[in-house]
């Protein structure tokens, strides 16, 4: 079901969608958005890519295994909680950097946690979709 129009559009659209998902993720603390929505948006972009080019091509473009996204995300989320413990607070209590970082705004462990959620959501959606697509492709 390869379509020239679709593949051309997707090639242009995917970077935009990914950038948009990052934007949703990072503004989540103060505006509507966050890890869940950002992750779903990014995953949708890749699903679109999969429809346009097939799962093998999509996997190559993704470079990382979906499972690795899940592991990375869980590690970030757990690590942000443990960081608070290392900083002498209780587990998952927020630790914030005083200075403002350009573009990103205020940085603290809850932001890192949200990034972890983002990666986990991308990982599970892609894991499931890729698995199903490969199953049906055979």
């Amino acid at each position: 079901m390869k379509s020239v129009i679709l593949s051309t559009v997707v090639r242009l659209l995917l970077p935009l969608i990914l950038l948009f998902s990052l934007f949703i993720l990072l503004r989540g603390h103060n505006e509507p958005g966050g890890g869940f929505i950002g992750g779903l948006a990014a995953a949708s972009g890749w699903v679109l890519y999969l429809f346009a080019f097939g799962s093998a091509e999509a996997k190559r473009a993704l470079r990382l295994e979906p499972l690795h996204f899940i592991i990375l995300g869980l590690t970030l989320a757990l690590g942000s909680g443990l960081f608070s413990v290392a900083a002498g607070k209780s587990f998952m209590q927020g630790v914030w950097l005083d200075a403002m970082v350009p573009v990103l705004g205020k940085i603290g462990t809850p932001v890192v946690f949200d990034v972890g959620v983002y990666f986990v959501v991308i990982g599970i959606v892609l894991k499931i979709v890729f698995a199903l697509a490969e199953e049906e492709g055979r």
Partner: peptide
């Protein structure tokens, strides 16, 4: 206390963060 203006998001990633950690697991 949590330096976030989106209360829903703050609940998810800070106040009830452990629940969310359980959920993504």
């Amino acid at each position: 206390e949590a330096k976030g203006r989106n209360v829903v998001n703050v609940i998810l990633v800070d106040f009830r963060g452990v629940d969310t950690l359980g959920e993504i697991t």
